[in-house]
């Protein structure tokens, strides 16, 4: 079993929700109406904060994703 690791630079970034929205929306072909932008950005910031908590968790490096879920 590998030693626990801290995920590297992944956690340390400053998150720009507006920029993220513009780039990802273009990549996945998701038009976002002007009226919806603020709400989407707030939710992106919340998801990013949650993802950061996950990045900071000590999970051994060789842990596989639980893509096939068996309780």
């Amino acid at each position: 079993m590998a030693e626990p690791r801290k995920s590297s630079a992944k956690a340390a970034s400053t998150f720009d929700a507006e920029r993220h929205l513009d780039m990802m929306a273009a990549l996945v072909d998701m038009p976002v109406a002007e009226a919806h932008r603020d709400g989407v950005c707030q939710n992106l910031a919340r998801i990013h904060a949650m993802a950061t908590l996950v990045f900071e968790a000590d999970v051994p490096e060789n842990t596989e994703p639980a893509s096939v879920h068996r309780p």
Binding site: M24, M30, A51, A66
Partner: peptide, 27 residues
């Protein structure tokens, strides 16, 4: 609900897979 779903559609694969890796450890 709408803005939460749109934001979810813009999540990078890396965030999702890290969450699934954590999940394996948690289980």
């Amino acid at each position: 609900v709408r803005d939460r779903l749109i934001a979810g559609a813009l999540v990078p694969a890396h965030w999702y897979l890290e969450a699934q890796r954590f999940r394996r450890w948690f289980v």
